[in-house]
């Protein structure tokens, strides 16, 4: 899923500025799962804004709504009236949802309440970590199912640098595991260390972000 976390309150408040009718729009998909922008989080944000406004003697109306997801157009219809009412939409979706919300409601200002972080997984309750960078040309079969591009701080393809110690990466020895230690251990466990002896050539990065904004067309699904 896409993992995000909420921006600091003050930053959100400054984006809202003087808007007096504010729609806080949650997203029911990834960011609900990672507890950053689902229904509960819209309520918490709204409550905090109301308390802050009361303290500052600001009169402002807030509405909360959460749709199935903000990356498909059809779900926005459910909040069309709220959007019409609002001066500004605070989207609690990932960066994709924020932009798409603006593409659907072209005459409204849409601001992000979250910082979108990465494609990741829930490693334990309340903890998410990165697994994929969307390079567009999956190489997991060469590395025992562990991605050196996403999990090595330097995206090295031919083995660990000198900064690997006790299984951890020197960039943050407390929190970042050495991706190459993980790859090595996995390859040893499945008896495929031979694969790691092959020299990996220069990677073609053009399938990733470096090739410009990307698009996928699945012909049999188009209308």
């Amino acid at each position: 899923m896409i993992v995000a976390e909420r921006k600091p309150f003050d930053e959100i408040l400054s984006m809202i500025g003087n808007a007096r009718k504010v729609l806080i729009l949650g997203c029911g998909s990834c960011v609900t799962v990672c507890m950053a922008g689902g229904e509960k989080e819209t309520q918490l944000l709204a409550s905090t804004i109301r308390l802050s406004d009361k303290k500052q003697n600001i009169t402002r109306e807030l509405r909360c709504a959460t749709i199935e997801r903000q990356c498909d157009k059809e779900f926005f219809a459910a909040v069309a009236n709220d959007v019409k009412w609002a001066d500004i939409i605070v989207s609690m979706a990932c960066g994709v949802g924020v932009q798409f919300c603006g593409e659907v409601f072209t005459d409204k200002e849409v601001v992000p309440a979250l910082n979108t972080k990465f494609y990741g997984a829930t490693v334990e309750q309340g903890v998410w970590s990165e697994r994929c960078v969307g390079c567009g040309d999956c190489v997991l079969f060469k590395f025992g199912g562990i991605c050196p591009i996403a999990r090595c701080s330097k995206s090295l393809l031919n083995g660990p640098c000198g900064g690997s110690q006790n299984g951890m990466c020197e960039v943050d020895p407390e929190n970042i595991q050495c991706g190459w230690q993980l790859i090595y251990d996995r390859m040893a466990a499945i008896g495929r260390l031979d694969l790691l002896e092959q020299n990996q050539p220069l990677k073609n990065w053009s399938t990733g972000r470096d090739g410009g904004p990307r698009r996928v067309v699945k012909e049999d699904a188009t209308l």
């Binding site: 309150f9 409550s47 905090t48 308390l51 802050s52 303290k55």
Partner: peptide
């Protein structure tokens, strides 16, 4: 934390 954010 939310209370602190709200200035309370």
């Amino acid at each position: 934390n939310a209370l602190r954010d709200a200035g309370l």
